[in-house]
Write a protein that binds this DNA or RNA. Structure first.
Lengths: 257, 257
DNA sequence: CGTCAAGAAAGTGTCGACACTATTGCGTTC
DNA sequence: GAACGCAATAGTGTCGACACTTTCTTGACG
């Protein structure tokens, strides 16, 4: 069932981020990317136990790189490890997602303030340029591109804060909520508001209006949260009831610690 | 040199935290704790390459659990992995430390605000009780206890924020700066200010004065930063020049990306 | 005397195998 | 017929070995 992971998955996945520790095109790295993709696309379902042997067979490598990848994913919060029972897919319950968005909001607004204090004028201008370069065709891009551009925008703010730890944190959060953001982006209702938000944020940055910009960011992120809840329900429904979307009452999955 | 890791290290290390994924008393977990202890105590020196075979010999296990532990530590930022060259101890340069403290400050003040908004009265009271229970003997405890109590205090605030992601982040940050905090605690100059800080923070919590409490926390943390810089210098000196503390000019270590 | 190259040594990345733990299925007993 | 325990199965945790890469050593050449 989880067999036959698409083998072309190792290339296009790491769109944007991960300012962390880098690796090469090892088996281990490849496994990490593929498994993470399986996770964010719900090919591996929330709450499910991960069978290392199956995975190693379907990826064509031994269990060692699989386990290394899973350990890494456990540190990043994608999966959890119960001692002699194995790795489990951590189900992002609704609250879990909201917690993540809240953390993101905290970090981003803090990053914005720091950027206002510290960044060079030329750097602020880079942010402006970045946004202006993509704003025109923004709505017309495919979802993956929109997502990458959006993440890039926010990551750039984090970078201009001058604190690499913030960048790392944000990148890690992004990876965990990427799947839901992609779903959201496909609800076209949101794009317009997103564009005006970003423009307003850039404007605040140019003025170095830390308070207002931070507030805009908070609102920008929190605005998406309600839509997120619906998107999450849709996603879970799609996962647990791929065809018959009828009896959604009985689907009481997504229970997590 | 790094041989003979103290074998009694697996018990007392995990003082406080790690609300993350849990494991058992596996070899892997044991290795993780021991290696992390070696790292925070500078037994493994910043910038140094970590020899897996040596480590596995000195811990009496094979390389597999060693590598799992190192992967975990890499995700947490303690070490870095260069593809075919191995794991390296990430040297916490001065800026790196300041970045971490800044992140900590951001998260803690945000947590305080959220706690003020959300926590039950009884929970706030738990914070008050926690602090009152330890404040009397605070100064007289051994450093490790003081450190654990201090971390516990701040972690409790994070818990009362109601956002487990904040707890996890803070726990992870704590682990990375623990070594320097321990050194700081041994400079007795600081205790007094710390005690009054904590008391003031509790007071603000009881009044649910989010703004003031967050400000106090920021100051409380930033206050330690200048002391931290000196403490870091001392620590590095001790590490790289264990006996002859004379020519500190030539020690140009702690260079990091 | 310094530079470079080839070979030797050391070290990482991955594998298959085995021991031990958890789980499942079956038969026994009340 | 249900609960319990026991055996069989499935799955994780760890090991030692080997291939391949990097690093060090040695020796030849300019």
């Amino acid at each position: 069932m989880t067999e036959r992971a698409e083998t072309s998955a190792d290339s296009d996945l790491s769109l944007a981020n991960e300012a962390e520790t880098r690796r090469s095109a090892d088996s281990s790295e490849r496994a990490y990317n593929i498994i993470r993709k399986l996770l964010v696309e719900f090919k591996l379902k929330p709450g499910e136990r991960i069978n290392e042997v199956q995975l190693s067979r379907s990826l064509g490598v031994s269990r060692t790189p699989i386990r290394e990848a899973l350990n890494r994913l456990a540190s990043e919060g994608f999966v959890s490890l119960t001692p002699n029972r194995g790795f489990f897919v951590r189900s992002l319950s609704t609250e879990g997602l909201l917690d993540l968005y809240e953390l993101r909001s905290i970090i981003e607004s803090a990053a914005f303030k720091l950027m206002c204090e510290r960044a060079e004028d030329s750097e602020i201008d880079r942010l402006r340029q970045y946004w202006e370069a993509i704003v025109d065709g923004y709505r017309d891009q495919p979802p993956d591109i929109i997502l990458a551009e959006d993440e890039g925008f926010h990551l750039l703010i984090a970078e201009l804060s001058g604190n690499p730890e913030l960048v790392g944190q944000l990148a890690s959060i992004n990876a965990r909520i990427r799947f839901i953001r992609r779903i959201q982006i496909e609800h076209p209702s949101h794009d317009k508001a997103q564009i005006t938000s970003h423009s307003a944020i850039v404007e605040a940055a140019v003025k170095r209006d830390a308070e207002n910009g931070a507030k805009l960011l908070r609102e920008h992120i929190e605005m998406t949260v309600s839509a997120t809840q619906q998107a999450l329900k849709d996603a879970l429904l799609k996962v647990f009831a791929p065809d018959n979307g009828a009896d959604l009452k009985r689907r009481r999955r997504a229970r997590d610690a």
